[in-house]
Write a protein that binds this DNA or RNA. Structure first.
Lengths: 328, 328
DNA sequence: ATGAAAGCGCTAACAG
DNA sequence: CTGTTAGCGCTTTCAT
């Protein structure tokens, strides 16, 4: 072998036992005598033996690999999610095979197919919507698929998502309480389902309340897009409230309002965001926002990994309003 | 088999060819006739066959897996790095096995050992310092080890790091140019080597320039630590400059200065950071900072993956001063 | 408790 | 070009 890893065979020889004795020593619950175990452990130690998980997995058809696909890994929201998820997986003895889709919309299907080839036991999709054919293939191959903040219209997939519409409702009510008359709702140009749900529910509620809403969307989901939205929207002096479907957008919007368009926040305009990313709490912003619970989201994903209850398919995680200072 | 993946054997039977014909069809450069190839492809398609990379790797002793270990994955700096790295790996046909060390200092060794078990071809360490014994084991097993922003005193490992001392020097010179008399240098309590180098080089330079420096360190590398540093340090009215070894610290420090301690930036105090994370460019901050080149860093890591040149072992990536508005 | 032997899914060397 | 054969490193019956 080119690469120099020691095999169980070599350990067996050195320890003067059979190859299966070695295997048993490293298998939890394998029946080996103290004496043999000790010899094996000693030899393994000296040789620097490491079990080959690939071979192990090949044998009992479980790779221990959990595929994670996502895009935009450096955004505060996704990276936080990934952080918690990868820690949680490791804690459960699972490994995280991370595939980064440069473009969420297009690249996701081939990545999932790649994960099949690695025999991932389960696949977690952080962002992007897998096509139906792929979902079918997951089912067919017994690979559990877990979608985050993505609602597909089928009952055979695991989905865990924040309660977007309720969150949007909270945001709406908050702006009503702030006595806004005309509010902007800003989302990015990449209309993800979650963003659509938020904007939709918000608009609907505001309409019921008889408050005029002016929609804006454009660019990627970023600070800059929010900034641009602010610059464009606030040319209209009568807008006195804004719901940004993402904190990142809200932060950009807020800076545009204060620093570019001469508005005071919240005196002249009330701003509410969604997500509660760390930056929303920074002293320069103190954004009032609808918080997703990262911990709860992650927890649900982790449990969805093994639980087989059908009623567990769709998990809606509650959101909550974080009152800071950007809404009157 | 419990899990329902189709094997090459089944495809072969269905296509009426030998099992190796199937293998060859899926091996780039395998010699198969058009006719056979077509039959195989058709059968594979209908059956939903996927090559088993685990078995493939077992055979030719290459897993295609690149281990990536890091901590603090949700910090802007690390997440950006991971984002670029994972994209780059994928583009090169490599997979990214991500292991998140909840605690950078303690957990890193076991994670690398785990990576051995998965026969990772190479290991990239985003944060944390692997113990010498582990490094030795990498060498022994022919696993390439690549350390980011970590300088070990050995010539048999790949290290790619930003030019911290030059960067610190730039920061120092900038504060000299701002005519500062007494400057703070703030770092986190987790004294990483990179932070140590920056603070050290800065202090040394300032000492040469005859400018008083007051060091501060504490807490994790976070916005909050920076904020706390600001609150504590700026009780001293005579401090008129600060070098924060990390942008995150700088942003917190800046907020403390302006919003808590009544200082104007840069009129009363000049602030310089290090890293150039996205938030440093946000309109509310516009932090003057020493930029690491994420792209260059990633590029070097990627090339270190295959290149075998010994002179490529230690790669120092240049940094540059990004002039914004927080230094006079 | 232990060893021998079969097999996981795949590739590669070897004949034909 | 194609099939047969022999492994890759491991786990797991099956005897002993």
């Amino acid at each position: 072998m080119a690469r120099g890893f020691v095999t169980a065979e070599e350990v067996a020889k050195k320890a003067g036992v059979s190859r299966s004795a070695v295997s048993r020593t490293f298998t939890p619950g394998g029946s080996v005598s103290k004496a043999v175990r000790r010899k094996v452990l000693k030899a393994a130690q000296e040789l620097g033996y490491r079990v080959n998980r690939l071979a192990q997995g090949l044998n009992n058809d479980r790779s221990n690999l959990i595929g994670v696909v996502g895009a935009n890994l450096s955004s505060p929201f996704i990276s936080k999610q990934l952080d918690l998820l990868s820690i949680g997986l490791l804690r459960r003895g699972l490994q995280c095979l991370l595939l980064n889709a440069a473009d969420a919309r297009k690249d996701i299907a081939p990545l999932i197919e790649l994960l099949f080839e690695f025999r991932a036991q389960a696949i977690v999709v952080l962002s992007g919507e897998p096509p139906a054919s792929i979902v079918d293939e997951c089912i067919a191959n017994g690979v559990r698929l877990i979608l985050i903040n993505q609602r597909l219209d089928r009952t055979d997939t695991n989905m865990v998502l924040s309660d977007d519409s309720h969150g949007a409702d909270l945001a709406a009510m908050r702006l009503v309480a702030a006595k806004c008359r005309k509010v902007a709702v800003v989302s990015s140009g990449s209309q993800t389902p979650a963003q659509l749900r938020r904007a939709g529910a918000f608009t609907q509620r505001m309409t019921v309340e008889g408050i005029e809403v002016v929609p804006w969307s454009g660019g990627p989901t970023s600070y800059d897009s929010g900034y641009q939205a602010g610059c464009e929207l606030l040319a209209d002096k009568s807008i006195d409230g804004a719901f940004c479907v993402t904190d990142l957008l809200a932060l950009g919007f807020m800076d545009a309002a204060r620093l570019e368009m001469g508005r005071r926040v919240p005196e002249d305009i009330s701003i509410v965001g969604f997500d509660d990313i760390p930056q929303a709490g920074w002293k320069s912003y103190q954004l009032t926002t609808v918080a997703q619970s990262f911990d709860a989201l992650t927890e649900k994903v982790l449990t969805a990994l093994d639980s087989d209850e059908p009623e567990t398919r769709l998990q809606v995680v509650p959101v909550s309003m974080v009152e800071r200072i950007t809404a009157r």
